[in-house]
Design a protein around this nucleic acid. Structure first.
Length: 592
RNA sequence: GCGCCCGUAGCUCAAUUGGAUAGAGCGUCGGUCUACGGAACCGAAGGUUAGGGGUUCGAAUCCCUUCGGGCGCGCCA
């Protein structure tokens, strides 16, 4: 099923071309106001300007050259030269019937020319618990990956974990140090058995590092040993990695995030490629020594003093930096993974770093115009005091704690609203609602802005929240259950519908919303903006509520009317289910 | 100092990227139910889109400028 906006765009653009002889886009959008119809073409004014003619007259000529009679009623011209379009009921009905035949994709086609898209997101550090600072990248990135995948692209997820460098040298040196203490009977436990052990060890190690020169020295040796592949050091390090992976896979599972172990490709993976990256850049005369460090100077970047800003790829002491790793990673993604598009999902503070990274990769000739490099930024998560989100005592909020609290709060709400459900159901619902609320709140905000984290707001049943969406879904499922109780076989009734007749405006309004789902997905994917999708789903749910209020389904006037209404219910449920569950990774529930 | 992001209703946020009279939710006020889950629906009030200038048929959106906020800017990631 081809996207309606694309069909209209194509036909009207063609008509503009026929009339003016110029190539001007029709700019078809959903109408701003229902009184202007369902869709509008905004491109005539610009075309008229280009052709140096009167826009209203041009609009008339275009309409005369246009045939959309299979879709719309005769187009109207309004204002300075808008072309307004009203869908025919028959067209609307046909679209619904087509959607009905495709349970998986609601009739939405895959992209004609799929690309290989690398999405880099989440990227936690090992040996530390995930905290709120990882939340936005993890879930926004996951939505982007799901969107592209649904559109038919080949998506390669990359979890670029922080698992290399001095801090881990320090930690494995501490494991060694601790084993000596253990021999003297001063501590119990030599190796960290869990991630929380690792975290404690990390704190202890840092203390020691800051106060003990010998330990500092040993940490450097450990780092070196690790980097040169020494088995003893490597073994200790692998232990840390294993605990960490287990931890964040648990979090991903809880969050319903699609990252798996095979997507992990962190700093350590690129460690042996860094020297070669630097060497290549040196040979190309792109990397030069400056203040004893190896730097590349991409054009257009300045430091505080107005001097060229370096992209430092090797420190004075010879060590490599994250810039070096990022270069190696990006080259790998382009050359080995064959990426057509690389999307980085990190916070906005790194914008300049990525601009420079892309510039350097371009200088090196590792990329070309056909490859799209994209930094998807997002703002900071703030507490209700408008300051960066912290615990009451000012500490970092652990993701695990945050999610637990969300589920706990949701449990209380379920308990209050629907105490008669089974314990098992309540648990399932609380999880879907609690975790869903956290994710949905993030998705529904424009990712560029900072956003204020509030359990009360995200768990509210009103407004654009996960619970509202889940409620809309549950109500539809409730109707279908009731139908079964009245000997109405919904599946059978919807299986062989040939014609549909609308008898109420609320039906038509809902139908028009339903057929716009493909466009919402496209907008969300192309801009990497999940809030376009949540915005659509919310509009849909509201539209359904209006319909629900106005149009009895099971007590409809006649069989035809009931069939149409059942179909609208079912398609709405499927769309909500698909959008929430498949694209946002938020579960819906039959009852709540 | 330079650069990036931001400033929209009392509050929290949208606005399909330059389109028609800037929309939601919360809060406030007023309505709707013996239909299917009231966790709902309808309506009202609330705006000089921070201020000013410009571009054009048309600006919250683009350009300039002032003010206010956040974040970057040489060996952390």
């Amino acid at each position: 099923m081809k996207r309606l906006t694309d069909i209209l765009e194509q036909r009207i653009s063609k008509a503009i071309g026929t009339v003016t002889g110029q190539d001007c886009p029709a700019l078809v959008k959903v109408s701003a106001d229902a009184k202007f119809g369902d869709y509008q073409a905004n491109g005539v004014m610009a075309a008229a300007k280009k052709a140096k003619t009167n826009p209203r007259q041009l609009a008339e000529q275009i309409v005369a050259a246009l045939d959309v009679s299979d879709i719309c009623q005769p187009p109207e011209i309004a204002g300075p030269g808008f072309i307004n379009l009203r869908l025919k009921e028959q067209f609307l009905a046909n679209r619904l019937l087509e959607m009905n035949t495709d349970k998986q994709r609601l009739g939405i086609e895959k992209k004609q020319n799929p690309k290989t898209v690398v999405v880099d997101y989440s990227g936690p550090n090992i040996a530390k618990q995930m905290h709120v600072g990882h939340l936005r990248s993890t879930i926004i990135g996951d939505c982007i990956a799901r969107l592209y995948e649904f559109e038919g692209h080949t998506v390669i997820r990359q979890n670029h974990i922080g698992d290399w460098g001095l801090q881990f040298g320090m930690l494995i040196a501490y494991i060694e140090f601790r084993s000596k203490l253990a021999l003297e009977g001063k501590v119990v436990g030599v190796i960290p058995n869990s991630l929380s052990d690792s975290e404690e060890f990390y704190i202890e190690a840092k203390k020691l590092f800051d106060t003990d020169e010998n330990f500092q020295e040993r940490s450097r040796e450990a780092t070196l040993g690790l980097h040169s592949g020494d088995k003893t050091w490597l073994g200790r390090w692998e232990l840390l990695v294993a605990h960490s992976k287990k931890h964040y896979q648990e979090i991903y599972k809880e969050l319903n995030v699609t990252l798996t172990d095979k997507d992990v490709c962190g700093e350590s993976f690129y460690a042996d490629k860094l020297a070669e990256v630097v060497e290549t850049l040196k040979q190309n005369n792109l990397a030069v020594e400056s203040d004893d460090a190896m730097c590349v100077f991409p054009e257009g970047f300045q430091n505080k003093d107005g001097n060229p800003l370096p992209f430092i790829i090797q420190k004075t002491d010879g060590a490599f930096l994250y810039a070096t790793t990022d270069l190696a990673a990006l080259r790998f993604r382009i050359q080995e993974l064959k990426a057509d598009k690389v999307i980085y999902v990190t916070d906005a503070r790194q914008a300049q770093h990525f601009q420079m990274l892309f510039a350097v990769v371009n200088m090196a000739g590792w990329t070309n115009d056909a490859i799209e490099l994209m930094h998807v930024t997002f703002g900071t998560m703030l507490g209700e005091d408008n300051k960066p989100f912290k615990t009451r005592t000012g500490g970092t909020v652990k993701l695990k704690d945050l999610l637990e609290e969300a589920v706990q709060r949701a449990t209380a709400v379920v308990e209050e609203k629907n105490p008669d459900l089974s314990a098992k159901q309540k648990t399932e619902i609380a999880k879907a609602v609690g975790i869903g609320a956290v994710k949905y709140a993030d998705y529904s905000n424009n990712r560029n802005s900072d956003y204020i984290f509030s359990f009360d707001k995200m768990l509210a049943m009103e407004g654009n929240t996960a619970p509202y969406m889940q409620y809309a879904y549950a109500r539809i499922k409730s109707i279908e259950r009731k139908a079964a109780g009245k000997d109405v076989d919904v599946e059978n009734e919807l299986a062989n519908i040939k014609t549909l007749t609308f008898t109420d405006d609320a039906e038509k309004d809902l139908a028009k919303m339903l057929i716009r789902y493909d466009q919402a997905i496209d907008a969300a994917a192309s801009e990497c903006r999940p809030n376009f999708l949540t915005g659509y789903l919310y509009d849909l749910a509201q539209s359904f509520s209006r319909f629900y209020n106005a149009c009895p389904v099971l007590k409809a006037d006649n069989a035809d009317q009931r069939r149409l209404r059942l179909l609208l219910c079912e398609l709405t449920a499927r769309t909500i289910q698909h959008g929430m569950s498949e694209l946002l990774g938020i579960n819906v529930v039959e009852q709540m």
